[in-house]
Design a protein around this nucleic acid. Structure first.
Lengths: 220, 220
DNA sequence: AACGGGTTCCCCCGCACGGGGGAGACGATC
DNA sequence: GATCGTCTCCCCCGTGCGGGGGAACCCGTT
């Protein structure tokens, strides 16, 4: 019996693409589609798919919340394959923590997508497939992203430093951060210096860039 | 006789999606696919499609360069429909300047995609379809984002200012930007000041944040 | 009791940054 | 020919930023 898949993505184009790729396989069947996370749970109850291919960024209810809700409320839940555009999307880690079984880049080749669905269905977990890195490398130069993540991993920011970085990434000056945290500006300067040193950033702008590139903060 | 379309996108998934959507129409035919801008010109010569549906962001040769090269080297060139993820992608404007005939968001509904291809094929130009804004609005709340986008729309950065902002968003100092652009630091300071004023940013950090939030630059 | 990490605050200092102003050169438009 | 926008470069000037130190306090571990 075939593997059944529920497609969840707010872009009809991506759904159509996934459907085209997956339906070309004799052993895979697309059970249905949903355009946002809110529609997933009833559909899963109804269709009982083996795998849910879920986008992370969606209106109304995003992929993480949907994953959490799904695992919490549906008995014997399907495997969840997170499909995302960006390799370093902060949501990826959250999604995995939320209970997703694997994730896949949208720019993966069809054969990889099919392979991922089969693996997930068999109960394997799928993280950072090697080929994904190659694909990313094609974009050359943009290695900045992985570097950013590495920087942030090495960083091990303290809680306070994290707060400060987040406020920096909202455009606040040292004085404004000080006011917000109810401390002196000298204190903020200490934290900022620590953040810069740990991130290997020369100035606050570079720190904020690293914050965005690593997914520590996200646009939107 | 049907409208023939060449699909150019580095993501096989998107190509498959476009193919599925377009081939469902009796009057539209997908003539072929290409994964990057470099492959477009020979394919256009060979297939002579009516429309090229072209992604903006691609490895090797991006959509703008490909558009320019196409219009420069191929006699009686096809219509070019730029397909992009972000509404305010900096490349969109460049692509239109390069000679593209219209652009479309990837999150458009299938009917809109089909409509766009037909319009373009008929020689109409297609810019900022109204429905696109509605779709963007669905993402609600991303208020910060919309504000950033609005700031960038109001901004109307010149080409040079755009370049400078992009380099700012890569963490370069004024001196480094000057070296990169082969101009004086005073010149860069002028551009930076113009960018800050137009974006309503107090310092370069805020400008970079706006760049990320508006999609002018994207992580990854 | 001693230690280390985290948070808080202080000093001095150099400099890149950003505001405010002006100005010349070029091309497109009127 | 005049005008406008863009790009280029120059001046002065104040200050926020970041480096390099030091030091106190709390708290959990050793």
């Amino acid at each position: 019996m075939p593997v059944t898949v529920l497609l969840v993505d707010d872009e009809p184009l991506v759904r159509a693409g996934l459907r085209a790729v997956l339906e070309a396989q004799p052993d895979i069947e697309v059970a249905g589609e949903a355009a946002d996370g809110a529609a997933v749970i009833p559909l899963v109850r109804q269709l009982r798919p083996d795998v849910v291919a879920m986008d992370v960024r969606m209106p109304l209810l995003d992929g993480i919340e949907a994953t959490r809700a799904l695992l919490r409320t549906v008995p014997d839940p399907p495997k969840i394959l997170v499909v995302t555009t960006f390799e370093n999307d902060e949501y990826v880690y959250e999604a995995l923590r939320a209970g997703a079984d694997g994730f896949l880049l949208k720019r993966a080749r069809p054969a990889e997508i099919v392979h991922a669905v089969r693996l997930i269905a068999e109960g394997e977990s799928l993280l950072f497939p090697a080929s994904v890195r190659q694909l990313a490398a094609e974009y050359g130069e943009g290695g900045g992203n992985r570097a950013a993540r590495a920087a942030l991993e090495r960083a091990r920011l303290t809680e306070r430093e994290g707060e400060v970085l987040r406020l920096m990434a909202r455009g606040l000056s040292n004085a404004e951060i000080a006011a917000r945290l109810v401390v002196g500006t000298e204190t903020v300067k200490s934290h900022v210096s620590a953040v810069l040193a740990k991130l290997g950033a020369r100035d606050r702008t570079q720190a904020v860039i690293t914050a965005y590139e690593s997914g520590f903060v996200a646009p939107g």
